[in-house]
Amino acid sequence: MPPRRHRQSQAASAQLDSEVIAKRTKRHLDELERSNYAEPSGSALFPGLEEEDEAPAGRAAKGRARQTISDKKEWKGQKKKKSTMNVRSAVLYKKSLQVLIDESGIANFPPSIPTYLTAGAPPPREPSRLLCSVCGYWGKYKCKKCKMPYCDMSCEAVHNETRCERRVI
């Protein structure tokens, strides 16, 4: 039955749409948490530090005895001491928040115990407002191709020229 199949594929594409949009939103929200715009993902090292400073010690001892920023800096009147292994590993082996959350086991806590994972504010009750992705005014229309809102024809033109992703159908 051709009409039915047609309807199905439409539903599938609508679902795909919302998935792609959700992904785009998620990526945008992640970007808003960055400390620097140009950030090589995953790299915790300080780019430029080793290259531009004289740091032969850090280079020479390849990998094994990594030099850290806290080691390198000597403060006035600071007693240099050997850190304990606990402190040393915390300094040397950086873990992302996601890894730390996994390791803390809070995902397995019974729901009666509030944790970081359960404390997020509930979803909003009102429908969300559409804002023009170009000028910020209310966005009455949505791009046919990528679903980003815009407010008038001039913003639509700017959108098509610069921002339209053309990926979402």
Binding site: I69, S70, K73, W75, G77, Q78, A90, L100
Partner: peptide, 18 residues
């Protein structure tokens, strides 16, 4: 806190004679 190296550097400086 996820970057303890950076945190230690800042704390070291804070407690120091500076």
């Amino acid at each position: 806190i996820t970057d303890w190296d950076a945190q230690k550097a800042v704390w070291d400086g804070m407690f120091s004679a500076e």
